[in-house]
Structure formats: C-alpha cells, structure tokens
Computed example of a mutant assay.
Amino acid sequence: MPVALHQAKAEFFRMLGHPVRIRVLELLQDGPMAVRELLAEIEVEASNLSAQLAVLRRAGIVTATREGSTVVYALAGADVADLLRAARCILTELLAGQNELLAQLREEAAVR
C-alpha cells in the first residue's frame, strides 16, 4: 500500500480523535439534529462545538443544511455509523479483557 494512502488513513483517524466529535457522530446516528439540540446534549461552549463541527464538515463526515435561521447537521453516509458500531464492539472486548485482569488482581490480593 502506498505511503500516501497510509497517511490519509492516519489523518482520517486523527480527525475522529476528539471526544466532542465522537459524541456528535453518536448523536447524529439517530438522525439529523439542529446545532441547538447538539449543544443541549453535549454541554460544551458553542464556539467549541462550532469548531468541532467545522472539522467534521471539512472532512466530509457530516453535512450541514440551513432551515431558516437553524443549521441542521446529519451524517454524510451510513458508513460512519457502521464505523462507530465497530469501534464500540472493539472497545467492549478490550474493556472486558481489562475487567478479567482486574478480577485476577483482586483475587491475588485477597489471597495475600
């Protein structure tokens, strides 16, 4: 695989690497939302949300449409929701493994 393609993939995952962006994408899985609705759910400063939405918009991950004075955001495609589902599955497995290790450590500590 060419280095440029690896770089593009790395940039894509870096773009996803912000908690507000992930939360926005999770919320948009249920359908389009107005900025005011996103603000109410995420509870960050409007300027912070605006900056994170701009990153997602520039990346082509979300779309924005104006309905009067309201801007409504939506996922650009279903693949983003699929990616988030895959990430949840992977994270669930990782955390389950950590819980098993924690249980073993607690058992070991109880014996001593």
Rank of each mutant, 00 (worst) to 15 (best):
R36D: 14
I61Y: 15
H18K: 06
A4I: 06
F13I: 12
A86P: 00
R23N: 03
V35C: 06
S69N: 11
E93D: 13
S47N: 02
D30H: 05
A40L: 08
V35K: 14
H6Q: 06
F13A: 08
V72E: 02
L84A: 07
L95Y: 09
Q52K: 14
E67D: 13
L95N: 08
A96P: 04
A59S: 09
L16I: 09
A76E: 06
Q29P: 00
E11R: 12
A74K: 02
G60H: 09
G68I: 01
V111P: 01
L49R: 04
N99F: 12
N99K: 10
A64C: 12
H6V: 05
A81G: 01
M15I: 12
E100P: 00
D30G: 03
G17F: 02
G97K: 10
A46K: 09
L38A: 05
E108K: 14
A103Y: 08
V62C: 11
T70I: 14
L49H: 02
V20N: 03
V80S: 02
A40K: 09
N99E: 13
C89E: 11
M1D: 05
A96D: 15
L91N: 12
L95I: 12
V24W: 06
E107Y: 07
A78E: 13
A87Y: 11
V20F: 06
T92K: 10
T63N: 11
V55D: 07
T70H: 12
R85N: 09
E45P: 02
G68W: 04
L102T: 11
V71N: 06
C89K: 08
Q98A: 12
A103S: 13
Q7L: 10
T92M: 08
L84C: 04
L49V: 04
V35R: 13
A81D: 04
A8V: 05
P19F: 15
R106P: 00
E108V: 04
Q104D: 14
R88K: 11
T70W: 10
E100Q: 15
A109W: 00
R85A: 15
H18L: 01
A81V: 02
L94V: 11
I61L: 15
P32M: 03
V3S: 05
G68E: 01
A109H: 04
L91W: 08
A59K: 08
R88I: 01
V62N: 08
L91M: 10
A96I: 10
A51M: 07
A59G: 11
A10I: 09
E37Q: 14
L56T: 10
Q7I: 10
A78Y: 04
V72K: 03
V72G: 01
G77A: 13
R21Q: 11
P2H: 03
M33P: 01
A46H: 06
R66K: 13
M15R: 13
I61G: 13
V24F: 05
K9P: 00
V80D: 00
V44Y: 04
A96H: 12
R85V: 09
A34K: 13
A4V: 04
C89A: 11
L56N: 12
